[in-house]
Every structure is written in C-alpha cells, then in structure tokens.
C-alpha cells in the first residue's frame, strides 16, 4: 500500500515539473502587496476606488455600508464616498449608461465587485494582475484612447490615473532567446511627471488593489479568524476522539 502511495506521489511530482507555461498575452505579473488587514490602506483604496473607478465601473454586489468593516462610520461613508442621490445601504452602481459605454470604449466596463477573484491565473493572483495592469499603461497614439497596456495589450480602457502617474514609455531591448530575437521589456522612462512619484503611485495602487481584493470577499478576514478557532477546537476534539477510540479498542485482541 505504501508503495502504491509512493508511486502516486512520484508520478504527481513529474506532472507538476512538466507543467507547461501556456503563453497568455502580456508581461509577467508583479507581486501585489497584501494589505487586506490594514485598515488605513483599505480606506485609502476605497477612496481611490470611489473617486476614480466608480464613474464607469460598478461594484453592483457591494453595499456602501459594508465599508463599516474597514473602519469607516456610516457618517464618514455618507459624507465622503456617496453620490448625493444614493443611500448608504445601496450597492455601488456607476452612473454610466452601458450602451454609451459600449460606443465610447468598444466594451462595457466590467463590474468590479469580484474582479480580484476572477483574474487569478498561473501567473499569480488576481490582485497581482490588477497591480501590474494599473502600473503598466503607456502612451500609444495608434489606439483610439491614446493609451495601451503591457499587462493587457490593446485594452479598451484609457489610463484614468494618468494625472497621478504621469505618462511613461516602456523601454525594450532586443535579446536572443531560443534561437530567435525577441523584444524584452527593460523598464520605464518617465515622459511627463504625475502628481505622485513612482513610489507613491505604486503604494496608492497597492492600496487600491488591496481594497479590490477585500471587496471581492469582505468576509475573508472573519473567515480566517473563525477558522483558527474551529481548527483549534477540532485539534482538541481529535485528541479526545483518538484517546476514546484507544480506550474502547484496547479490549479487541
């Protein structure tokens, strides 16, 4: 039996080693900071989200008053984050008309409630993807919006955060790889400065991505906290069950 299991494990490891890297569009993803436990970061992210994203994107499953979970009071939410017509129990709906959006951008801006969960892949988590995506915009006059993106080539969305980031140009170098020349991404050249330095911008995007990650599953921190207690209980329970079993079975010869 043990032999069978060993063979099984050995064969699995061979499979994992062989896992092919299916070639998806876009560059490799950077690792996003995980601040889903950091309330200041989440609040900053929420502010960025409401001010910059919510104009075109909805978060139609997320209620404003759920923001109480990241340390905001109902009054703070009403004063700073709500559109005037909304109620605090409403979900985050954008004001854009989907039909017009389709005309303007060629695509409907997707709902962002669970976007961080849906974009995961073999290159990293959904948060990694968004973190990379929002930091790799560059000017491209051949595109209708004037913008293009390294993580999502030919994306329909323009760089709405350009005022913060400024505009940048990617630098490529030709490199010999696998017998043919390939363009390899070699970093950025700042063309016009934004309101933020690169470090500040990266941090702001880190906050925004943490917020998106939290919003995709607001129960996630509760989940882990409850989980610790459940597992501790079950460890004790397993110990008792083990001793009980031994006590009953000691008579069986």
């Amino acid at each position: 039996m043990k032999k069978l299991l060993l063979i099984l494990i050995a064969s699995l490891s061979v499979l994992v080693a062989q896992e092919s890297s299916a070639n998806e569009d876009g560059i490799a993803w950077d690792k996003a900071p995980n601040n889903t436990n950091d309330l200041v970061s989440l609040q900053n992210g929420a502010k960025l989200f409401v001010n910059h994203c919510l104009n075109c994107h909805s978060a139609a499953y997320m209620r404003y008053n759920r923001l109480k979970d990241i340390g905001l009071t109902e009054q703070q939410i009403k004063d700073n984050l709500l559109f005037t017509t909304d109620k605090v129990g409403d979900t985050m709906k954008s004001n854009i008309d989907p039909k017009q959006a389709k005309v303007w951008f060629g695509a409907n801006p997707p709902d962002l409630t669970v976007i961080a969960r849906s974009r995961s892949g073999h290159k990293g988590s959904g948060a990694d993807y968004i973190y990379t995506y929002l930091r790799t915009y560059y000017r491209d006059p051949t595109k209708a919006t004037g913008w293009n993106n390294l993580a999502y080539p030919n994306v329909a969305m323009p760089n709405v955060l350009w005022e913060l980031q400024g505009s940048r140009q990617p630098m490529f170098a030709k490199e010999e790889a696998h017998g043919h020349e390939a363009e390899v991404f070699k970093g950025w050249e700042q063309v016009t400065p934004g309101k933020m330095s690169t470090e500040q911008y990266d941090q702001a995007i880190g906050d925004l991505v943490s917020y998106l990650q939290w919003m995709a599953e607001p129960a996630q921190n509760t989940r882990v906290q409850v989980g610790v207690w459940v597992v501790l209980f079950l460890l004790c329970f397993t110990f008792i069950a083990w001793r009980l079993n031994a006590a009953y079975w000691k008579d069986i010869r």
Partner: peptide, 24 residues
C-alpha cells in the same frame, strides 16, 4: 460502539482537513 467510536476519530480528522480548506 467499536466502529462508531472509530468513525468519530475519522470524522474529526476529516473535518480538520475540510474546515482548513473552507476557512483558509
């Protein structure tokens, strides 16, 4: 009682794995 007690042990180990997945 032999296998009911025995299965309680099995159940608790199973639940350890099951809840670890659910919560983490």
């Amino acid at each position: 009682p032999y296998y009911t007690i025995h299965d309680i042990l099995g159940v608790s180990v199973f639940l350890l794995v099951f809840t670890s997945i659910i919560f983490f």
